[in-house]
C-alpha cells in the first residue's frame, strides 16, 4: 500500500549531492512531494528531508541505494506517526480587505498564525503546521483576495531519534547496533528458523 514516507538523509555537505540524490527518485519515476536541505546538529553534516508517496518495499530499497552513495552517512525512512513534522506557509493579502471583512485577531488565534509584515497595501501572515492546517487558512483567506501563497518543504524530526551524534558514533563503530533493522526475516527472530 502506498503511503507518505519521510526520508531523512545525513550527508557530508557536497556540491552535486542534491542532484545525485534527486536522480535516484526520478530514475524510478517517483515524485518528490517535498524536499528540504538543512544543516544538522553535527558540524559538517547536512540533512535532507524528503517526502514521497510509495509502498514500503520501494522505499526500503530506495533508502538502501541512497545510503550506498559515498557522501551519504545514513538514511532513514519513517511513516507519519513516527515523526513530528511541520511545514511553514506564508500568505499575502490586501490589508484594506482584511481590515474590513475579517476578525483578524480571531483568525490569527484560530490558525496559530501571526502577521509578519503589515503595510498599507498588503499584509503577510505566517503559520506552520501540517498540510491540512496550512490549507485551511488558504480557504479562509481566499474570499478576501489572497494575492500570493507559498508553503515550505516539510521539516521533520524522528520521534525515536537519539540525535545524530549517537547514530554517528554507531555508524563509525565496528559492530552494528542490535536495533539496526537489516532483514525482515531475521528480524522476526526465532520464528524463521523453525523448520
Amino acid at each position: 500500500m502506498k503511503q507518505e514516507y519521510t526520508i531523512t538523509v545525513y550527508t557530508e555537505n557536497q556540491v552535486g549531492l542534491l542532484n545525485r540524490i534527486a536522480i535516484m527518485f526520478s530514475r524510478r519515476k517517483i515524485n518528490i512531494e517535498s524536499l528540504n536541505t538543512s544543516p544538522s546538529e553535527v558540524e559538517g553534516i547536512h540533512r535532507f528531508t524528503i517526502v514521497i508517496n510509495e509502498t514500503e518495499d520501494v522505499v526500503r530499497k530506495l533508502v538502501r541505494q541512497i545510503e550506498k552513495q559515498v557522501d551519504v552517512l545514513k538514511a532513514y525512512y519513517n511513516t507519519n506517526d513516527e515523526i513530528i513534522w511541520q511545514e511553514l506557509a506564508l500568505y499575502k493579502v490586501p490589508t484594506d480587505e482584511i481590515a474590513e471583512k475579517v476578525k483578524v485577531e480571531r483568525l490569527l488565534r484560530e490558525h496559530g498564525a501571526r502577521a509578519v509584515v503589515i503595510r498599507k497595501d498588503y499584509t503577510i501572515f505566517e503559520t506552520s503546521g501540517h498540510r491540512e492546517e496550512t490549507d485551511k487558512l488558504i480557504s479562509v483567506l481566499e474570499p478576501v483576495g489572497l494575492i500570493e501563497f507559498v508553503r515550505s518543504a516539510r521539516v521533520a524530526i524522528i520521534k525515536e531519534s537519539r540525535g545524530f551524534h549517537e547514530k554517528l558514533k554507531e555508524f563509525e563503530e565496528t559492530e552494528p547496533h542490535p536495533s539496526t533493522r537489516e532483514n525482515e526475516y531475521l528480524d522476526q527472530g526465532e520464528n524463521v528458523f523453525v523448520m
Binding site: 530499497k61 538502501r64 545510503e67 537489516e182 532483514n183 525482515e184 526475516y185
Partner: peptide
C-alpha cells in the same frame, strides 16, 4: 547491502 532483498528476498 543494497543488493540484499533487492530482487530476491534473502532468508
Amino acid at each position: 547491502p543494497a543488493e540484499i532483498d533487492k530482487n530476491i528476498k534473502a532468508t
